[in-house]
Design a protein around this nucleic acid. Structure first.
Lengths: 339, 339
DNA sequence: TTCTTCATGTTAATCGATTAAAAAAATAAA
DNA sequence: TTTATTTTTTTAATCGATTAACATGAAGAA
């Protein structure tokens, strides 16, 4: 293994101390080094193809210019897109991104927090898993900067970037009502996470405001551990029971994908037999025989704001915590137009 | 900012030297420390919630347990899936993953190699961009371990994990022929990258072996810079000219997505008007009104092999370079069944 | 009693870069 | 020429953990 070139090598070559080399290379113009020596050092650095060892720098400075990104699953397009945006924004500020997928599990998330903390990341961007409150508190008490995205805990004061999930769900449901549906069900996750509760609340309130009754079996909460089966069951309960729905609101991309596949299997037609709206985008939604109306989340806004807030906070931990609530957009297509 | 707990703090608390603490905490059983002291140290470490500073470890050991993953775009599901697999495999071996997207551009890729090298990643997993040969040579001459995935350079001896693209394209084309198509076009990237050349070669040879002529306009090479427009143009040339095709082979997921959208716009029906096969999977392909026949690449195989080979190579740089060529599977559905 | 041997701890160097403080050299002032 | 001042360069400590080499003390052997 060819040893890397260090300050010492340059120093030896030029015949000065490593301190001098360091001053030339890191302090630029306002260095206290004579022009002649400075030139020689720069030349030597070029010739030896010197690359500063970021690890050594980090040890000295206590700063790694590294962000830890914790999401449920990096292969989920929702998070993959956010990751890309975070990457780009971070790069602009000379940060790199370490990522980890926690599969919506608090213990995995905790592992990742530890794992990445040991690697001295300067801060975290986290799409929090259910039950991860203690981790968040841990970060707070240890003064490790972090920004929550997509989900947050109302009872914990922190930086976060989210959307108004209540409003988004409300609008989606109202749209279903306005397009002639009155028997509307929802498929969401069985999660205490605030964003999920808000989506369900938005749906319920929209129904109420439309003077529509919500029958038993219409509010379905699916567990992460068994999505496919439980989605089927939920749809069976909504389509094959006496309380048959005429529209379904899916609370996430993943739920919609499973749901639509099963609805296709059952040979129900959208929007004639059932109207559909889903949260999140997806190539699949464009390609579906009936392009889906969906709630478009501002992924760019998530990523950009999160990186901005986090890096500001890293530079100055005394800054006030920032809360950003963005608006989601309802992209209207054909899946809820009836009659 | 609450200062982190270091060996020194434990040493002070227990009243021993940092060396002793280090021996207890890092050498486990075969430490030369008395049981009594060892217990006290462990207790103190627990009480102070000591977390070793990975950066300091890295500086001393020259090893960061970090892998740099360079792909075209982490938000592309193909790469996002690979990233997830790489993450999981890496984690098992206590490695973390730093990722970067190069957008198929050699200069961006070079930036990333530098950027991540400065951060002392132990090695790279790279889906190489066109024209990145020099970077690969750079890594070789600097003895930085790396594994190429998805694409490789036949003229450069290196580790790689790829599929037999020639065979995959050949089989796909032959399938189109066998299902009654004879006027078959291909949409691929205008790239000198070997995997792309092989896909085109596979197509051509299959046509030849089927005694089928390849007309002008049937081999379309699209530039990354202008995918959408050029795909349209290619399809215009293949569907609206006198040399109308009856089938199209898409060389990647992305090309197929743009292509199918335009084909829908033109109101051509699949498979009645045109038969289709694409490389790569995609939720979209499942949801298309006519589920797509596609070439399924072994993403798991890419990720698992790459991490295995890379980490082996990191542990023992003298190891012989490994080349893995996996088989792709043709998933047969409805998009190429005609008549 | 004296010399080994072994168990247990400590000292100090190291990884590579930074930086305060000291030292040396060059220049200006007296 | 001598002293004061400024410029340039070096020394050495530091970040946190590791580890070779050395030190200490006690038990066992002769």
């Amino acid at each position: 293994m060819k040893k890397k070139v260090s300050l010492k090598d340059i120093a030896k070559k030029v015949g000065v101390s490593t301190a001098t080399v360091s001053y030339v290379l890191s302090k630029g113009e306002e260095s206290r080094v004579s022009l002649k020596v400075a030139e020689k050092v720069k030349k030597a650095a070029r010739e030896l193809n010197y690359r500063p060892n970021q690890i050594a720098k980090s040890l000295k400075s206590g700063k790694t210019f590294t962000i830890g990104l914790i999401v449920a699953d990096i292969s989920n397009p929702f998070f993959a897109h956010i990751a890309r945006i975070v990457e780009d924004e971070a790069k602009k500020l000379d940060y790199t991104v370490l990522f980890g997928s926690c599969d919506e599990k608090a213990d995995k998330s905790w592992d990742l927090v530890q794992f990445l903390s040991n690697r001295q990341v300067d801060g975290f961007i986290i799409a929090a898993a259910e039950g991860s409150e203690k981790q968040i508190e841990y970060l707070k008490t240890n003064n490790i900067p972090f920004v929550l995205i997509d989900r947050y805990f109302p009872e914990i004061e922190s930086n976060y970037v989210v959307i108004n999930n209540y409003k988004a769900a409300y609008k989606a449901t109202r749209r279903l009502i306005q397009t002639g549906n009155s028997r509307i069900g929802i498929i969401a996750y069985a999660s205490s996470l605030h964003h999920m509760r808000e989506r369900i609340r938005g749906y319920k309130n929209a129904m109420e405001d439309g003077n529509l009754e919500i029958k038993e079996d219409w509010v379905n909460e699916i567990r992460f551990s068994n999505i496919k089966q439980e989605v089927k069951l939920a749809i069976d309960n909504m389509l094959l029971s006496k309380n048959k729905v005429d529209a379904i609101l899916f609370a996430t991309n993943t739920l919609a994908v499973y749901g639509l596949k099963y609805i296709d299997e059952l040979n129900y037609k959208i929007p004639e037999d059932i109207a559909i709206i889903s949260f999140d985008e997806g190539e699949a939604f464009d390609f579906y025989y009936c392009p889906l109306t969906y709630v478009k989340q501002p992924l760019k806004g998530f990523g950009e704001n999160a990186v901005k807030i986090l890096t500001d906070q890293i530079s100055d931990p005394a800054l006030k915590k920032e809360q950003v609530c963005l608006e989601a957009e309802l992209i209207i297509r054909k899946s809820c137009k009836r009659g």
